[in-house]
């Protein structure tokens, strides 16, 4: 994280801050800086950065959980295998319940998204960690992939019948064009809210923790600040799981709309 740079910076800025009369240093956004892992060069497209490191760690934990953890293929599962089976069953049932039986073809894709998001979120909660999912660029790519593939699947499965998604036949005829406009707008807003929801949640939680961490420097309220960090950390643990769940379940909902567009 940016903490090493922070400390040197704080040392360098100490005099300046004292001059300004402000004793608190807030840098809640510095934890989201993308830095090259080796050297100080500029961040190019293929540079190995902290993004690479934490995404690789997410891949590693997924492999540890789902591949190494299940390597014994025990009929009576151990702890790791239980968690792996639980994750599998959870996502499988979600896809089946929300998107229907024919949505199960797309189960590996949704499982990929879910496992990546939940692992990246959880790893991001480690101290000094970099949260890859707090970047809008990352979540926007995932949301756009979901949006485009769902649209393509919709047209591929239903042809132009997919457009009946916007033409709500149960509404009165007068209202239908207005509703159609609203539906089209909300359809195109989907990737925006889909991506910003995840990135915003992650960013907000981490920034709030960082703000309280800065408050901990004040001796008078530091016990309160530490307590607040603990409480928010617990909340963030919940949020990081729920956001992965919400991302996956919204993907399933969009998939259901593509497979069965008729209201």
């Amino acid at each position: 994280m940016a903490t090493e740079t922070h400390s040197t910076e704080a040392a360098a800025n100490g005099a300046e801050h004292a001059e300004e009369g402000s004793s608190l240093v807030f840098h809640p956004m510095d934890q989201f800086i993308v830095k090259p892992l080796f050297g100080d060069g500029p961040v190019g497209t293929f540079t190995i950065t902290n993004v690479t490191l934490w995404m690789a760690l997410a891949v590693l934990s997924i492999i540890l959980l789902l591949v190494v953890g299940t390597s014994r293929r025990a009929v009576v599962p151990g702890r790791t295998q239980s968690i792996a089976e639980l994750a599998y069953g959870f996502v499988y049932k979600m896809v089946e319940d929300v998107a229907g039986k024919d949505g199960l073809r797309y189960f590996p894709y949704i499982m990929t998204l879910f496992m990546f998001i939940v692992m990246a979120n959880m790893l991001g909660l480690l101290p000094m960690a970099f949260t890859t999912t707090s970047h809008i660029a990352v979540t926007a790519v995932m949301a756009m992939v979901v949006f485009l593939s769902v649209t393509i699947i919709g047209f591929w499965k239903n042809g132009f019948g997919f457009l009946s998604l916007f033409w709500i036949s149960s509404a009165p005829l007068v209202l239908r064009p207005i509703l159609a406009i609203i539906e089209v707008i909300s359809y195109f807003v989907r990737p925006v809210s889909h991506s910003i929801r995840l990135a915003g949640n992650m960013m907000a939680g981490h920034a709030v923790i960082k703000v309280f961490a800065a408050f901990a420097a004040l001796l008078a309220i530091s016990p309160f600040a530490v307590l607040a960090i603990t409480a928010i950390y617990a909340l963030e643990l919940l949020v990081s799981f729920i956001q992965a769940y919400v991302f996956a379940i919204l993907t399933c909902v969009y998939l259901k709309d593509a497979l069965h567009p008729h209201h």
Partner: peptide
């Protein structure tokens, strides 16, 4: 039991708007 997923979808939709306002605040700040 069958409606818990629906509840989470509802939560996600209404929470997203709060996140939007938070994002606007962050944009204004930074």
């Amino acid at each position: 039991g069958g409606q818990i997923a629906t509840m989470f979808i509802g939560i996600a939709f209404s929470e997203a708007l709060g996140i939007f306002s938070f994002l606007v605040a962050l944009l204004l700040m930074f």
